[in-house]
Design a protein around this nucleic acid. Structure first.
Lengths: 209, 209, 209, 209
DNA sequence: GATGAATGAGCGTTCATTCAT
DNA sequence: TATGAATGAACGCTCATTCAT
């Protein structure tokens, strides 16, 4: 029992940095880098100012650590997409679905985007990082899906940058959610449906023959 | 010559507020609301701190005035699109082209988006304002273009929210430009081409007959 | 008619300094020297800041001029007391009455006292001035009245500083009025009656024989 | 010795608020509320600006706390007067003596009066507070002394508000001390003597028989 | 490790004062 | 004489950071 308690206490301590990073995330999201007070982060964890400085050099490095903390788990974000089965069309649909799920489920992913835009000037690394771990994989994956579809004869030969256009509605959706989430409701289902429908069929009437 | 000087003097005075608003725009873009110093705005204009307070109550109202200043001209942004000629397809293409031109030409439009994301919590009005003067008109216009195309038999009947998906790549483009503009190059031409191609034809191979 | 108007206009201008001094009095009373803004004084007159500086070197000298302006008329404050008729006792009573009338009627006299207390450290001259034009004459006059009464056999021989004690209730009344006027009501009639009664008879029961 | 040091350290901390309040008193007395700089209060204690804000919300609340700090001890000011012995006349004399002692000894009491006059508009509470803890008790006590004297047949039946007049010279003395203390000398002994003499005997010659 | 008192640089804001018109 | 735009010194207040405990 003593062991258990010690363990727990030790664990508690081991968790401190993570607790602080989580608290930092919430505060930085709410107020932005400059307006966030180290003290508010601390009291969210239930410790005092000084404690934050035990674990982090300063506010700047705390912010950067927080960015790494929330963006680390994103690295394998799209892993599940590799296991999709079915025709290229089916996999494309499923993949788009997965992306929306991800966007809706993962608040950290969304807020990371806010940081990129709001603090990108102050912390240029996060701009690149975000591109490398999210935007780029997203497009690569979509591109390879398209390529497969073309190879399989399901998709027509698409022009360069086509995958950008294919992915774009999801990215726009992410921004809408970021922007208007708490002020307007977004109908995910019909948005996704429209997206997939557009991607698959375009707008022009097909004239048989 | 006396006239010129008098003009210049009087004009100088009349221009002060606008000068300050322009300077404020640049500083707020660069550093965000909180980190921007009123003094820096002033010295960008070539005056001292106190002068800013001759024209604006405080930093907050200066920011809000700046938002109004840059978003006012946006109100007729999409007016030119109403004069498009040709088939629905042609007009759709031209309209998309116009949107990209706008996005590329109008830095203030782009940076407004940054403010919406970065300062939306602090200044909730700008979130709604931006939706009302940009997002909403954009979608309405696209929707009516689509409706016409459907009526003319050029476009197929599209599901609800389709216009969101049609517009989305342009919005994503805006964000990319905002995010990566100075760090990566975006190939506008091929992006637009892909966008239009997607919208018109979708991705699925058309099987004749 | 032109003359009249010109006169009037000229008079207006001649009055400017006085207008400003009157306005200054009100503002300084309301907020004290430091917290009063020159601009508020100006707008009370209906002119702008700069105009005040046409007539007065700076805020400090404006304040001093204002003090002179309101305390000048006080110099003959007690003149009327010299014309009192009747027995010493009657004149003493009348004099005390006059003092209370003065205190109640002359707001400037009262507020001058506030300046002396509130700004005496900043403007030491007004302390002396106030003593010289108000406190001192008040006591001298009372002393000479007492002396006459003694000489006439109406008053008993009083100890030194007796006149201080005789005058004191009126001075205390002034302070009460200054302090509590707008928050409590002071019953002047009974206060004066008690004052005169005290001065004439004291408190000890007189045992005949 | 370790104890001493520990004590000193801990005590130092506990004393900070009081040190600051005492320093604030001196500064506010010297310059008035508006002209006093928080930094001057701080350096009087030997700390920096920021430290003051560790203990007090802002300048306004510091001032109010200072008023409470100096006026709290005044609440039992007149307690000792309740233990006076002797005839009513003797007790009246002793009480008057006590009041002057109080006025002369207690600088804070005197300066509180200055705050009431100088800052009463800005801080209306202190006007009432001062009335409640000083003026009112003073008069009540004097009134009950007079009532006893009357009952005992030592004093004659006095008109209403008589106690005001009886107390007034002491209050006027307080103001004189406040006003002229450092510029003129007040002869307390003869002032008190005259006061008591006036109160007991009045001015009118007593005609035997 | 944790605390929180203390620091001090920094910024928003005010306002007396000046001066060109 | 009157204006009011502009100045700049000053001050209230905040907060990241330090350090003795």
């Amino acid at each position: 029992m003593t062991d258990l308690k010690k363990m727990t206490r030790a664990e508690q301590k081991a968790r401190r940095p993570v607790q602080i990073l989580d608290a930092a995330f919430e505060e930085f999201v709410e107020r932005g880098y400059v307006a966030t007070r180290v003290e508010d982060i601390a009291s969210r964890v239930g410790v005092t100012k000084g404690t934050v400085y035990v674990y982090f050099e300063n506010k700047e490095q705390l912010f950067e650590a927080m960015i790494r903390h929330i963006s680390g788990p994103l690295e394998n974000l799209l892993a599940s997409a590799n296991e999709l089965k079915g025709t290229a069309t089916e996999r494309l649909q499923q993949n788009i679905d997965l992306i929306y799920d991800l966007i809706i489920r993962d608040r950290k992913l969304r807020e990371l985007m806010r940081f990129v835009i709001a603090e990108g000037t102050r912390f240029p690394q996060i701009v690149d990082r975000h591109h490398d771990i999210f935007i780029d994989p997203l497009e690569r994956q979509m591109q390879s899906l398209i390529d497969e579809g073309v190879k399989l004869g399901e998709f027509r030969q698409a022009p360069a940058a086509f995958c950008d256009a294919v992915v774009a509605p999801a990215i726009a959706f992410l921004f809408f959610k970021l922007l208007f989430d708490e002020r307007r409701t977004l109908d995910k289902a019909s948005y996704v449906k429209a997206h997939i429908d557009l991607v698959l069929h375009g707008l022009v009437e097909r004239h048989p023959g």
